[in-house]
């Protein structure tokens, strides 16, 4: 991350304040350099420039469209090279920001990254081993599930069908789906705490969201494995 830009920046052309609209001057409509602007600031009209986790999605989309109309490289095809480059960078930031902010999970992940609690290792992608480390309270269930999955795959290899096992796994899938839903609702409560709490409450919310996201990733992989296994037809 570059040095974060303060909300008190001014337009390079007319020096108007950019607090409410850092990518596009609200006064003269000129595109602004986007270095150092974070996703929440890019949507300052919706977030007030603050890292909020509870957002009005309809307002977010309206702002996305409004800014796209002004910032998109299509609008700068005849502009100077410098403005073309700023338009490209500003639109990329706008698109990246919209993609992340419209999804509650990605929005939370981005907040954690911003606050130095990034969940991802550098270049680790989504196959990193942490995703495969079961949360302590689930160890037993996961062990059981893996045994059943192994059995199912063996059966499939032999061309056998075990309806009881399939039923068990379908139940397990529903169970883990339920846990996933619980994680999402816990995340929403923590998000509310983050948005309204004092510094101490915020720090605590941040920490629990980080571990909830780890748990969520683990569960999601698990559910996907079960789904895949059940969807594989016997040979």
């Amino acid at each position: 991350m570059d040095t974060p830009r303060t909300n008190e920046s001014n337009c390079w052309a007319c020096h108007a304040s950019l607090a409410a609209s850092p990518l596009l001057c609200p006064h003269c409509g000129k595109v602004q350099p986007s270095a150092g602007i974070n996703y929440f600031q890019a949507f300052a009209a919706v977030t007030g420039g603050q890292p909020l986790l509870t957002l009005d999605l309809a307002a977010l989309e309206r702002e996305f469209h409004r800014l796209s109309r002004k910032l998109h490289p299509d609008r700068f095809a005849r502009a100077s090279e410098g403005e073309q480059a700023w338009s490209l960078a500003a639109t990329a930031l706008l698109n990246d920001a919209y993609r992340a902010l419209k999804d509650p999970v990605q929005r939370t992940e981005y907040l954690l990254e911003l606050k130095g609690q990034g969940v991802g290792e550098q270049n680790a992608g989504r196959n990193k081993s942490a995703d495969r480390q079961p949360p302590a309270d689930l160890l037993e269930e996961v062990f059981e599930l893996n045994m059943q999955l192994e059995e199912l795959r063996m059966n499939q290899k032999m061309g056998e069908d075990d309806p009881a096992l399939t039923a068990d796994l379908t139940r397990a899938q529903a169970h883990f789906d339920g846990l996933l839903a619980q994680v999402d609702s816990d995340l929403a409560s923590q998000a509310a705490l983050w948005d309204s709490g004092d510094d101490t409450a915020r720090a605590a919310a941040l920490k629990s969201m980080a571990s909830l996201l780890d748990r969520r990733r683990y569960l999601r992989n698990l559910v996907r494995d079960v789904k895949d296994a059940l969807a594989t037809p016997a040979l």
């Binding site: 490289p73 490209l88 960078a89 930031l93 698109n95 993609r99 550098q122 270049n123």
Partner: peptide, 10 residues
């Protein structure tokens, strides 16, 4: 992903 799109890696 809507383009232009970017990603920063270290």
């Amino acid at each position: 992903s809507t383009i232009p799109a970017s990603a920063t890696e270290h």
